[in-house]
Simulated assay, not measured.
Amino acid sequence: MKTIKSISIALLIGSCCPDGVEIDRLVLNENEKKLIPYNGNEDVKMIYSNGFEFDFNTDRRATEMHRTDTQHCGDSYSTYELLVVEMHSEIPEFDITLEVTPEEYSPYVNIGINRYYFGFNSLSEPDYEDLEVNGTNFKNVYVLQNQFSDNSIISPKEILYNVQFGIIQIVMTNEDKVNLIP
């Protein structure tokens, strides 16, 4: 019995996977954090194209450290900081997640709205230098398209976004619009 326990312990110890070595740690700088302008516990005023006004409530703004994927036991890895902002509204129902990582890891700002995903390259030029939306002029506006929107249901198909205000407009598949009230 002692022999079986000894062999089992030896196999268990021998089969443990050693941790790899962290070779790089990427953290967000202040400019990267400013790509998502929302603060925690903030209400963002919006208006639906039918005139209904509502708020996006900012539930969370936090950073997390993540580890890159490795292919084999003991592989070296990098860690990177991820800024996550979560927002929601009850009526109409929107669940929004915005994420940004250091540009060295990925220059994309990712936005999810009700499980539909959008993104833009923060290193690229905006689509519009100046754009009027709902009677307000906005500078440096990115147009984000959802490549997988389903026209058989009402879902987000396009977002207008700038770094100063965040989401300026959401265009739905039925052409309804949700606009920021600055």
Rank of each mutant, 00 (worst) to 15 (best):
I4H: 10
I4P: 02
K5Q: 13
K5E: 13
A10H: 12
G14R: 07
S15D: 13
S15M: 02
D24P: 06
R25C: 04
V27S: 11
G40K: 14
E42Y: 09
E42P: 06
D43T: 12
K45F: 15
M46Q: 10
Y48C: 02
S49N: 12
N50V: 05
N57R: 14
D69Y: 05
T70Q: 01
H72Q: 03
H72E: 01
S78W: 01
V84I: 15
E86M: 04
P92T: 05
F94Y: 14
I96K: 06
E99K: 14
V100E: 10
V100Q: 05
E104C: 01
E104R: 10
N110H: 08
I111T: 10
R115M: 08
F120E: 10
N121E: 01
N121M: 02
S122W: 04
S124Y: 10
D130S: 05
G135Y: 08
N137V: 09
N137R: 08
F138M: 05
K139F: 07
V141N: 03
L144M: 09
N146R: 03
Q147E: 11
S149H: 14
P156R: 02
K157Y: 03
I159K: 03
L160Y: 12
V163Y: 04
Q164K: 14
V171M: 06
N174S: 05
L180G: 08
L180A: 07
P182V: 12
